[in-house]
C-alpha cells in the first residue's frame, strides 16, 4: 500500500486522510412553515410587518426594523424583471450532479428573489420581463423557484 504519497505537481509528500466525514444537518424552519407550505402549493410568500410595513424576502417571523412580531404573509406577483444572472459552470460538491445551470435575481414589485433560470444563456438580457413558478427539482425532489422569460 502507498502509505506516503507524492503530489506530482510539487513533489510534496502527503498521507491521504483515512477518516472520512459526511456532514448532515436537520435544519429548523422556525416560524416560516407557511413559506414552505406555500412553495408546495406553487405560491411564493414574502413577510410584511403589520406595524411598520417593512417587507422581507426571504421572509422572517419578526421585523428587524421595528421589532414587531406581528406579520402577515403576502403573495408575490408572478411577473417581474431580471436584474442579473450567471451560469454556474464549475459546481460545488453538492451540486456537481447537475448540468450547468443559470441562476438569476428577479425583482417582483420591488421584492428581489433568487431563482433558477430556465432559458438559454444567450437569450437572456438584463431588464427583461420574467415569470416565476415553483417547480420540483429532481433528483432530490425539493421545491425551487424557476424564472422563465416572458
Amino acid at each position: 500500500m502507498d502509505y506516503i504519497k507524492v503530489d506530482n505537481k510539487t513533489g510534496g509528500k502527503y498521507i491521504e486522510d483515512y477518516r472520512k466525514l459526511t456532514l448532515e444537518y436537520s435544519i429548523s424552519v422556525g416560524g416560516l412553515e407557511k413559506y414552505f407550505e406555500g412553495l408546495k402549493n406553487g405560491v411564493l410568500y414574502a413577510s410584511k410587518c403589520k406595524s411598520c410595513g417593512s417587507i422581507y424576502y426571504p421572509p422572517r417571523s419578526s421585523c428587524g426594523k421595528c421589532g414587531s412580531s406581528d406579520i402577515v404573509w403576502i403573495e408575490l406577483g408572478k411577473e417581474g424583471t431580471l436584474l442579473t444572472f450567471t451560469e454556474i459552470n464549475v459546481k460545488p460538491a453538492t451540486h456537481s450532479h447537475y448540468d450547468d445551470y443559470i441562476i438569476g435575481i428577479g425583482s417582483f414589485n420591488g421584492v428581489k428573489v433568487l431563482g433558477l433560470v430556465e432559458a438559454k444563456y444567450d437569450e437572456l438580457k438584463i431588464g427583461m420581463k420574467i415569470r416565476y413558478e415553483i417547480v420540483v427539482r429532481e433528483p432530490e425532489n425539493y421545491y425551487i423557484i424557476v424564472f422563465t422569460p416572458i
Binding site: T84, F85, I88, T94, Y98, Y101, L114, Y142
Partner: peptide, 26 residues
C-alpha cells in the same frame, strides 16, 4: 447557505458574476 446556497448552488465566482453581468450592462 439556508436561503441561497443549498437550493440554488451558487458559488463564489457565481456571486461575483452576478455583479459583473450587471456592471457590464449598466
Amino acid at each position: 447557505y439556508f436561503w441561497e446556497v443549498r437550493d440554488y448552488g451558487i458559488t463564489f465566482p457565481g456571486y461575483y458574476a452576478l455583479f459583473m453581468n450587471r456592471y457590464m450592462a449598466v
